[in-house]
Design a protein around this nucleic acid. Sequence first.
DNA 1: AGGTTGACTCAACGAGCGTAGAGCGAAATG
DNA 2: CATTTCGCTCTACGCTCGTTGAGTCAACCT
Lengths: 184, 184
Amino acid sequence: MTERAERRRRTERRILEAARKLFADLGFERTTIRAVAKAAEVDPALVMQYFGSKQDLFSAAVTVAPAPVAKGDADDLVEQLIGSLGLKMGELPQSSLAMMRSMLTHPEAGASARAVLSRQIHQVGESIPGDDARLRAALMTTIMLGVTVGHQLLELDELREASQADIARVLRPALRAIAHPQAG
Amino acid sequence: MTERAERRRRTERRILEAARKLFADLGFERTTIRAVAKAAEVDPALVMQYFGSKQDLFSAAVTVAPAPVAKGDADDLVEQLIGSLGLKMGELPQSSLAMMRSMLTHPEAGASARAVLSRQIHQVGESIPGDDARLRAALMTTIMLGVTVGHQLLELDELREASQADIARVLRPALRAIAHPQAG
DNA sequence: AGGTTGACTCAACGAGCGTAGAGCGAAATG
DNA sequence: CATTTCGCTCTACGCTCGTTGAGTCAACCT
């Protein structure tokens, strides 16, 4: 690779990282192209030149966490969901936080969030028994959403204080109660 | 009351209702004073004159749902939480939705949401046994948050399709599993 | 009836935003 | 070495926003 191409890639990556951090921290509206450019030590016009528009930059910076659900029984599924809380690595990728941060106020981020959640609901629904598996899957997914929002975005002290193991221990029976349709 | 004062109150109320709807639908950033004024059939300057600033209008339009937790045992608490989903009346008040819509992207709304949630966590924590009541209360509260966000703000089809009774039926055992510390 | 209050509008300012086009200077190419 | 390419910056346009101060007219007071 030529020096120019390499330099360009580095600059592009720097812009993307700055964009991800700002989008994740502030959301789409409060993040300005100028602030991204400043954080990446670059001229605002360059950001436009590389990514086309602010919206395109957002789309490039934000990636959806595929949240693959491997096959297994209902209890395996619960463990996967708990593991996907991202508490293990200390943090979810900035790109996912960026999408979540804006999902309530930016239309495209909202649509993206709905798509990701719907897919996860569908996958979870196929892994649990019962004729209302779809509703159960939706509730399990939104439960994970709520815990993630409270922990990562609202940064509630009561959750931040707790260890991953403690959260998993308390959450596990709740998710299992939903995953297993009660007898009767 | 004089005709002037009555007229003023009506106008002020019209502005507040328009503001609540727009804040609830679009969030703080995407809601403009001009749009609020137009919806209230009023000049934008009047909105400023009555409420001081956009931020003050937001503060006036958004009220926090006190979510009072009456005394009772853990199972009563679970029923209260489920009831507070606001699915019964068909919808939560616009003022609460407005705060939730902006809580991830607007600093003041975020602080407000944290305050409300912390208070609810504290109240819930006092109604359930166990030495980790605080964590359990936090998770019960964030679970309700997640379901509300998914249902009311993201408007997930999988939840919209379900009846309040179905959601309550599936959610109840999960909340009870957290409310009752498992033996051992 | 005349003067005062106050609800409300009009017009405009200043700031910050996303965005566009011309230009520069170093790397690539022959 | 001459020329082209291209990563990058500079400057500025046009727009929308929150916000302001002067002005208007009907309701109120005496």
